[in-house]
Design a binder for these strands. Structure first.
Lengths: 115, 115
DNA sequence: GCCTTATACTTTGCAATACAAAGTATTATG
DNA sequence: CATAATACTTTGTATTGCAAAGTATAAGGC
């Protein structure tokens, strides 16, 4: 990342926390999903995310207890997938995170219109 | 921070990048301001920020070339203050950052209403 | 059967930053 | 002159996005 502008570095930083929220939202909808499917869903929502970012992120969220996880082999064959679902804790956290983002957004609006 | 919940850790992470944007907004309005005044302005906008976060942040933004800086001694006496203003580059970056946040917000909305 | 490709996940190393806590320096007040 | 208030600095820790390389399984062509 040595050749990045300071703005590009800022872009990476500004995604911290945000990506977790997005993943929780995907899993709330899908009930159960796996890495590449989450990735494609985010892509369709206009959010491009690196594999090397997403997989460790899912793993951390699992370790945090926000997700449950299990290996699933598709019944019609195919590559085994590690599926994730929201845990009880994840279900509790999600609205709190949404609220945090709403508050941040409100502070931003205040600051934009500062007199 | 060892006693923090994973949620509290997430809160800290989710402020990365966001704080820079807020500071730029304050300086766009104030034209020129210094640490403690920025801090109080953010406070009034509903954003509590630690001294040990803000000062290094202002310094980094200055080093990035987003801000200009000079020491000012109030004409009526008082403690010398390090004043900051938006640089040309800061003025260019600010709308880009605002746009990034708008896009993020839109992706969030899409993910919230995902069918 | 074997080789290539696609799918899916893992690992490693690096750089950036929010925070807490402690420290420094200057000015004002009693 | 001592204390408090203002204002900024420094240090150490933990976390995380990303790039790049690696591992493993399944499917398809010959």
């Amino acid at each position: 990342m040595e050749n990045s502008t300071t703005y590009q570095k800022w872009l990476a930083q500004s995604r911290k926390g945000y990506l977790e929220l997005c993943v929780l939202l995907v899993l709330r909808q899908k009930k159960s999903s796996y890495g590449l499917e989450v990735l494609q869903t985010l892509e369709r929502a206009g959010l491009s995310i690196n594999e090397g970012t997403l997989y460790p992120l899912l793993n951390r969220m699992f370790k945090n207890g926000w997700l449950t996880s299990q290996w699933v082999t598709p019944s019609d064959g195919g590559h085994p997938r590690r599926h994730y679902e929201l845990s009880e804790e994840g279900l509790v956290l999600l609205p709190q995170m949404i609220d945090t983002y709403k508050n941040n957004q409100e502070s931003l609006e205040i600051l934009k219109e500062l007199k």
